[in-house]
Amino acid sequence: MMGQEFFVLSFPPLVIGIFASIACALPGNFLILRKQALIGDALSHVVLPGIVVAFVITGAITTWPMMLGALSAAFLAIALIQAVQRIGRIEQGAAMGVVFTTMFALGVLLLEMTDTSKVHLDVEHALYGSLESLIWIDSYGWQSLLSIEDLSYMPVELWRMVGVCSVIVIFVVLFWRPLTLISFDEGFARTQGMRTNVMSTLLIGLSALAAIAAFDAVGSIIVIAMFICPPATARLMTNSLERQVWLSLVIASVSTVIGYYLAAYGPLVVGFEESLSAAGMIATVSGVFLALAALFGSHRKSNS
């Protein structure tokens, strides 16, 4: 059952996919409650120009310069969104729409002008990532999980994703109460002396980190879906914040597993030769879950 093939081909993409989904869904819970769901969308788009610029400067796809490039792009985008909002006196959603589409378009243009033929960096990769290509060549089955030498051949994206996900989990556990307060009643939080601006910047900063780490491995389509779909689905199924967050993590993980296998084997079952994009399928599954919850969820809308 869980043979060598599973560990070589499926284990890394599944684990990376699950950690990426959780890293996005966790802050996504607070973003949707703060009516900032679009931030996730914006962040995952603006990452592209940052990564391309980092590539142009360093001439190689290396982790840290790209992370830095993406992070600077994310913060530039947040500053631009606030500037557009203030100067143009328009609402946040519109400001985000203007900024992130422009920056993404800029990223695509930069990409076309840059010679990236030797490296794995193109628009398709940016959208869908390369989940299926993340394999664990040197695995000999589950025993390899216990071998430090074998583990060292695990795709580096996995460790990066696990690291980022851990940072986000620790952040949410530690700052659960401030996060709840700034999401529910920011004014009250301020009267208690809480630095609400610092808190919301941290939340957006960590969302950016999740978007960047996930972007590289799984592409922006999963990132966008995971910021919004699992938390929104969970919100329709419970009226408790704690349960909502737990549920969103379960939904994110389940969407990833189902999406991955549907993409890999679904087309074969219906007679097609080639498999589909795992990232696209995972995003689709999470969307289907949201649609089901919207139709049948037990806590769809209160009477306020």
């Binding site: 529910f184 004014g187 009226n239 909502q244 306020s304």
Partner: peptide, 10 residues
């Protein structure tokens, strides 16, 4: 009115 009362809380 300054609060979103749809917030998941009892």
């Amino acid at each position: 009115a300054s609060i979103d009362w749809d917030f998941p809380a009892t």
